[in-house]
Nucleic acid binder design. Structure first.
Lengths: 144, 144
DNA sequence: TTGTATGCAAAAGGTTTGCAATGAT
DNA sequence: ATCATTGCAAACCTTTTGCATACAA
């Protein structure tokens, strides 16, 4: 991510906080910057480890709370991973996932690489579908 | 599920156990029957509750272990659900999910309803893709 | 100044593990 | 008889909560 882009994302996060009347604390900024700067899908604890190194006073509880705030404000997504530990994804637009069946590693796949999936008729199930994500499973380079 | 089908699945599970040298215990049979008879995606604890009623001596630990065995032998799948608790799905063939953004409910969607997704070229990411699942998100009937 | 956000400690799930006893082959 | 599987209790890990303090607005 280019410095400009990073700055833009932070600015837009701060703007959204103001819009919602959320206080702009160092903790929120730090956690946001950490997550936004990553291309993987860290757990709350992994974010905590990284962030705690920079700002030792920041607590694990706050990391959990800020990540929740990021999800609510649309700056992160929860990713559903087979290991049953929540992971956070800073990419919120439509994209897809490659999941390794062997080691569980998870990689993003850009939407442009995957042909559009027509939204099926789920009226039978009473569902109003808004979007979708495709999870491809297989073996990653280290596992085959 | 018809009685015949239920019998067939149990028989094929028992056969797979023998093939792998896994002992055919009452516990394995009972947990398998419980999961295979459900159309939802229960947590280990939900399976435990149901099974423990029928066989009070069966412990929670064993339920966790048997469910793991079912996944290893291909008779169940772990489902990635937003609540970060592992859920088990007795349907192992390709199928898709409808997830409600509001209440988190999860419903299966048959593969026949979803047009085939061509497997993308993931060589860049070093992945060998074997299959896929589409997660549709939106609102369920109770939530809209 | 006012009320929200944080940190701490403790609780609350969910899941795993060590070990002795049990039971399938 | 032998080895895998079970049950129990305890440990472990992740996440949440209550409450007093600190800090942004």
């Amino acid at each position: 991510m280019k410095p400009t882009e990073r700055h833009d994302r932070l600015a837009s996060f701060e703007q959204e906080c103001r819009r919602r009347g959320l206080a702009l604390t160092v903790q929120r900024r730090t956690v946001f910057e950490e997550l936004a700067g990553r291309r993987d899908h860290p757990t709350a604890d992994q974010v905590y480890d990284a962030v705690h190194r920079r700002l030792p006073s920041l607590s694990r509880t706050t990391v959990y709370r800020v990540l929740e705030t990021l999800v609510e404000t649309g700056f992160a997504r929860k990713v559903h991973h087979p290991d049953a530990v929540v992971r956070f994804d800073p990419t919120t637009g439509r994209h897809h996932h490659l999941v390794c069946e062997s080691c569980g590693s998870l990689v993003d796949l850009d939407d442009s690489v995957v042909p559009r999936v027509p939204i099926p008729d789920a009226r039978g199930a009473g569902f109003r579908i808004r979007d979708y994500t495709v999870s491809f499973n297989g073996l990653c380079s280290s596992c085959h």
